[in-house]
Design a protein around this nucleic acid. Structure first.
Length: 618
DNA sequence: GGTCACACAGTTTTT
DNA sequence: CTGTGTGACC
């Protein structure tokens, strides 16, 4: 342990050695946050002799959880066998497990299904139908997002109705209770419910809360700035007894408020625990000083939250580059030119060291076109997720309906797959019930039965280039099914941990293919690349048009910009176009304010090189 | 029950 | 420009 601690800087050591009571770690970008968290757990286990059973670490994504767990187990090395692993997961996965075990106390069947957003939307539509509210009066998506916001704020349908004002809110107040009723009828919980129902369970059954409080003597929470109110409440409840709670976060990297995250939870924590110890991690190991200066210069324009001033022992590095393009194609052309220039100068630089970041997925199309045209390899991160694919949803619908026979969203889907298939499916359903397959057959056998009986596979042709990947996905689903012999186990896990299957696979293969990474700024959080391009730095695109007149949203965009800048290790280029095709329209945007917020020297130096044909541009 | 044409809207996204 | 969703028609 000593040797591990020796590799840490003073800030990190202090943060690791403090184990008792409430602790706040303000971890700047690239400050070794994951290392600190991992070693804190190791320190608790090895030095403080805390049983891993009594430790819980909560992360923002399953991917992060998997990474943490792996690093902890690896570090324990041969001793790992002596310990049962600590609980590491997301708030949602922890709550899902708690409800599976103890949910029946508040009337939640232990076979409950987890609805994803398309299932949720269908349920909202069903509710609107039953209430005879036409879809043109209110978009189901908007209603769903209002419901979700309420749930995040722990506002139930009854209290919402008491203050709902105006046409839209009035509609929501009618749909919300029915939506909840339909969910209950269908034995389904949405992602928000997982948190909400756990809170309800804890509030109504103190003895169950006590059980978990006693188990989780040490609580560590990552990405605290991205917690919503329900998660804040859960962490408060769980830590109430032992008060050994360590939260890690960075105000400047809060970029998920649009789905309920509230960085003020970080402040609230300080108010709840005025005696909390605070450990800032301000030494950065990733970027050049120039990049950090740029990041600081931009984020300093935010006034609603504190900002860490990062420093590094890394060299000052080269200046940032700002590139003006004629249009969106020219933008990518110039990027390619810069990439090849840099690669000529530095033979060690490969495509895998390079990322192109953008604000919206719609922007990826042009980049792909140009890269394809030049024959440059790339990987696109994001897009349709495994679980959202048609063939996967179809097959899972069959299984969901078999499991509870209450999932009418699934049934609707099954009906759409054809009458013949439907009757074959019902034949199997009868057999399934009569012979008690739920108890006797494993997931994979049931899955194969269904595929065979319904002739689902016959919908696709292996030789058709569009169908082949679908068949491949179904095979992939089969391999997941092998891991979870219990059907309910499988269904609950497949929706919760789906992310891991995709990204792990694509990331593991050769740890990273020799290709440029294309992704949104959001998706880039937590990653790093030697050479980073932030494209489309234009008012209305980034910051996004909907954020231009709202200070709160503008500050969030600025944090997103901060996240983007701090992904770069040595080379950072920001680009914008004078003209851009946007939803079929030619726009003449103005340069993003974030460019103007870079250090004066960077702006002046770059602007000097710009053509002056267009003096009004800035 | 399936296909085609037209209207329409259009961030970010994990759980 | 594109993907989605609806309504008409076979």
């Amino acid at each position: 342990m000593d040797t591990i601690l020796n590799k840490m800087n003073d800030e990190q050591k202090k943060a690791i050695l403090a184990t008792e009571g409430p602790i706040i770690v303000l971890a700047g970008a690239g400050s070794g946050k994951t290392r600190v968290l991992v070693h804190k757990v190791l320190y608790l286990i090895q030095e403080k002799e805390v049983s891993p059973h009594n430790i819980v670490m909560l992360t923002f994504t399953n991917k992060a959880a998997g990474e943490m767990k792996e690093r902890i187990m690896n570090a324990l090395g041969e001793n790992a066998m002596r310990y049962s692993p600590p609980t590491v997961g997301t708030f949602h996965s922890l709550c899902a497990k708690i409800l599976r075990v103890d949910g029946d106390a508040i009337g939640i069947s232990n076979k409950y299904l987890i609805y994803d957003s398309s299932d949720q939307q269908q349920t909202v539509k069903d509710a609107m139908n039953l209430l005879s509210i036409p879809i043109k009066d209110a978009k189901p998506r908007s209603i769903l997002s209002a419901i979700s916001q309420n749930k995040n704020q722990l506002i139930d349908p009854v209290s919402y109705a008491s203050f709902a004002r105006g046409r839209f809110q009035e509609i929501v107040s009618r749909v919300y209770p029915l939506y909840q009723q339909l969910m209950k009828d269908r034995d389904a919980l949405d992602f928000d419910d997982l948190l909400l129902e756990t809170i309800r369970l804890f509030r109504t059954h103190p003895e169950i809360l006590k059980k978990y409080q006693e188990q989780f003597q040490y609580i560590l929470i990552d990405e605290y700035q991205d917690t919503n109110h329900a998660q804040y409440e859960l962490s408060r409840m769980l830590s109430e007894k032992h008060k050994n709670i360590c939260i890690v976060g960075d105000f400047s990297q809060s970029i998920y408020s649009f789905r309920g995250a509230d960085f003020r939870n970080l402040k609230k924590f300080q108010e709840d625990f005025p005696k909390a110890q605070v450990f800032p991690l301000s030494q950065n190991y990733r970027s050049t000083q120039n990049i950090l200066n740029a990041a600081y210069s931009v984020i300093s324009h935010n006034t609603s939250h504190p900002v860490l001033n990062l420093w590094t022992e890394n060299p000052e590095g080269e200046d940032l580059r700002i590139l003006q393009a004629e249009n969106e194609h020219h933008e990518v052309d110039q990027i390619i030119r810069l990439i090849h220039e840099a690669m000529d100068k530095n033979p060690d630089l490969t495509y895998a060291d390079i990322a192109i970041l953008y604000r919206m997925n719609a922007q990826s199309r042009t980049i792909e076109e140009v890269l394809l045209h030049h024959g440059i390899p790339y990987v696109l991160v994001g897009g349709l997720r495994f679980y959202e694919r048609k063939e996967i949803k179809d097959v899972l619908s069959y299984l969901s309906y078999l499991a509870t026979q209450k999932d009418s969203v699934a049934l609707k889907r099954i009906e759409k797959l054809g009458k013949k298939r439907l009757s074959y499916f019902f034949e199997y359903l009868t057999e399934f019930d009569e012979r008690g397959y739920y108890e006797t057959k494993s997931t994979i056998d049931i899955l194969d039965d269904v595929l065979r009986k319904t002739q689902y596979i016959e919908m696709y042709d292996e030789r058709d280039p569009e169908d082949a990947p679908r068949l491949e996905n179904i095979r992939e689903l089969r391999s997941v099914a092998l891991e979870f012999p219990n059907l309910t186990d499988f269904l609950q896990n497949v929706s919760l941990v789906e992310q891991e299957y995709r990204s792990d696979k694509s990331m593991q293969k050769s740890s990273r293919p020799n290709a440029i990474t294309l992704m949104t700024l959001h998706a880039a959080k937590g990653l790093e690349f030697s050479m980073v391009f932030m494209i489309g730095m234009e008012e209305g695109l980034f910051p996004h048009s909907q954020a231009l007149f709202d200070t709160t949203e503008l500050e969030e965009e600025r944090r997103l910009c901060y996240v983007g800048i701090t992904r770069a290790k040595t080379k950072l280029t920001l680009t914008f176009a004078k003209r851009r095709l946007f939803f079929g329209q030619r726009l003449t945007p103005t340069v993003s304010r974030f460019i103007m917020e870079l250090p004066t020297r960077v702006v002046e130096k770059n602007l000097k090189n710009m053509p002056t044909s267009d003096p009004d541009f800035f």
